[in-house]
Computed example of a mutant assay.
Amino acid sequence: MESPNKRKLPLKERIKRKKDRIQHSKKTNLPLKQRIKRQWDRNAIVYIFLTPALIHFLIFQVYPFAYSFVLTFMDWKIIGDPVFVGLKNWKTFLGDDLAWRAIWNTVLFSIYYIVPTMTLGLILALIINSGVKAAGVFKGIFFLPVVTSFVIIAGIWGWLFRGTGSGMVNYLLSFFGVEPQLFLADSSQALMVLAGLSVFKVAGSTMIYYFAGLQSIPKQLYEAARIDGASRFKIFWRITFPLLKPIHFYVAIITTIGSFQIFDSTFLLTGGGPNYSTTTIVYYLYEQGFTGLNLSYAAVLSYILFFIILVISLIQRKYLGKETTHF
């Protein structure tokens, strides 16, 4: 849309100015080689500093990703050269009942893990944000499991949920007349116990994300709601929770990815048992690749995991990634 000043100019003058702009654009339309040289002269220092990171990305990210996809069509046991077998490994996956069970166990673990982690992180953030005394101390306590070695936490968790009378949880349950539970030795309980361990470990970092989101919400919205007589629940449900939507989206993405990559707790506490009830897709991938030396089939499992996470992330982006506005 032209400005009022330009509209006042005579028609011939406007046409002349337009031709001048066209001629100027033609002069600046340099050959590709000269444009590349100009860009290099302007941003040479930036390209120099980015080169090491780019080389690292190509060697340790792009190349392994591409080579592992090629490996899915090969038969390679580390010893000897890879042999092309076409779609054999993919067909093997379709008929592998244990692989499908590992995927189902991973989905169950995600259900036990994602919502409790997000809920607990939000509750802790609300407590810290409420102005409680010694908020910094509480933040440190809640965040302590995040920075503590997972091996140490897993050892403590295994002691707490030991399936004998000497286990702390069973000892406490005995006061309420509950018989000792097997926990990690019970196929119906082991996966939930592992999910509880992950929730305990990660909830502190989730709290930090939500706390940052709470700090970014304008205080004027809360003041206006209180003047209108809104209750605390309505303020939370109508203002706080909706405006935390970007945080919900981010936390949902990282917790979903983390849940589908669960390995360490299974490796340390259950070894995939009992009766394969805690065998997750990553643990099964590890067994195929490093225990069974079937790297080609392990590559297939890694791509199946990649596609599952990609689809779930796209679904979450569609329903949670929309921009949030407030008035």
Rank of each mutant, 00 (worst) to 15 (best):
T51Q: 13
L54R: 08
I55R: 15
H56T: 11
F57D: 14
I59M: 07
V62P: 09
V62Q: 07
F65G: 06
F65R: 10
A66E: 12
Y67H: 09
Y67Q: 13
V70P: 09
D75V: 06
D75P: 11
P82L: 05
V83P: 08
V83N: 14
V85T: 09
G86Y: 08
G86M: 13
K88Q: 15
K88G: 04
N89L: 03
K91C: 08
K91R: 15
T92P: 08
T92H: 15
F93S: 07
F93G: 04
L94F: 10
D97C: 03
L98I: 02
W100T: 01
R101G: 02
R101H: 10
R101M: 12
A102T: 07
I103K: 13
T106E: 13
V107D: 14
F109S: 03
F109C: 01
I111T: 05
V115D: 07
V115C: 02
V115I: 01
T119A: 04
T119Q: 06
L120R: 02
G121I: 00
L122I: 00
I123Y: 08
L124F: 00
A125E: 08
L126E: 09
N129A: 01
G131I: 00
A134T: 03
A135W: 05
G136L: 05
F138Q: 07
P145H: 07
V146Y: 13
V147Q: 11
T148R: 10
T148A: 07
T148H: 06
S149R: 11
F150Y: 14
I153T: 06
G155Q: 15
W159N: 15
F161S: 00
